[in-house]
Amino acid sequence: MSEIVRSGQEAPEEPDFAPAEHVHPRRTDVDPRAARRAERQVAILFGLSAVFTLVALAAYVLIPVDAGVSLPLAGPVGALNVALGLSFGLAILCIGLGVIHWARKLMPGSEVVAQRHELRSTDEDRAAAVAAFERGLDDSGFAQRPIIRRSLLGALALMPLPLVIILRDLYTSPPNALSPAEQLSETIWDGGVRVVSDIADRPIRPEDVPIGGLVSANPENLHEVEEAAGNLNARAKAAILLVRMRPDEIVSEQGEGWSYEGILAFSKICTHVGCPIALYEQRTHHLLCPCHQSTFDLADSGNVVFGPAARRMPQLPITVDEEGFIVAQSDFQEPVGPSFWERG
């Protein structure tokens, strides 16, 4: 006779649950006709689901991917998307509704009660666990052999370092590359670089910019640089705005002689967190960032007049070349875009 009793094989001491005291019979419990009706409803829902699945399959085969349809509120949308979404959605939904209806109407409707047990183990069990742990610890000698413990902890602390150091080359700088802060501090603008309009990509003459006008522009060499670099990094710093106002409207500029006949060039990149800005109010000469509403006064050195940006919009010194096109006098004299620690 074996004396071994596995804990799981003991007979349950108490039932898993007992019926609750409060029972409210449903119609389906007392009226067999109602129960049969519910049964039919559930089956109909499952049947509908099957039909909708077939509709979805048919829609996939029959409706061309580029067919459009106009919906009352949504306007013109893809016909296939609507047909597939509706039919497949309903196919899924009907299964869910059917199952829930089945559970609510036909499965036992009264609640049951189960007992909870305190989650904390008995003091004896806890003490036994502690004793076992201490026995294990003792047997390992982890506490008694400090030299092993310390050398292991030291080794474990050092071991992940290669994994960390490898992350250094998340940024692979080419040899002789400028430091990150220096890279952020310069753009591809330089003395004599022509200003070209953003859309037409053509050099601009002063007479192309009317008073009150706003032109989104880039340096002429942008495309070559982008092609060579294979990325848009230069664009993210070099984008500018040209505005023209009557010379007497200019309150101040960031440098003497930086404008040309009332035409001023400012960076287009917000000094807050770097959104490009294009909302310009002619009358007040205010430039408003659409992202966080920083507002700059272009007639007054691009200073911040409102919003979370702390620094003025950098101004690009411009003039015209011998052919009469607007060119930069030099690069920006301060970093464009959002602030950074080393900016000073």
């Binding site: 998307n81 609507v82 047909a83 597939l84 979404g85 509706l86 497949f88 959605g89 309903l90 196919a91 899924i92 939904l93 009907c94 299964i95 869910g96 509704l97 059917g98 199952v99 829930i100 089945w102 559970a103 609510r104 499965m107």
Partner: peptide, 19 residues
């Protein structure tokens, strides 16, 4: 049944809305 059925209800609602 209720939880399983409800999964289909949530799934189906999202799919139909996405359509």
């Amino acid at each position: 049944a209720k939880a399983g059925g409800f999964f289909f209800v949530v799934f189906g609602t999202i799919v139909a809305l996405s359509g």
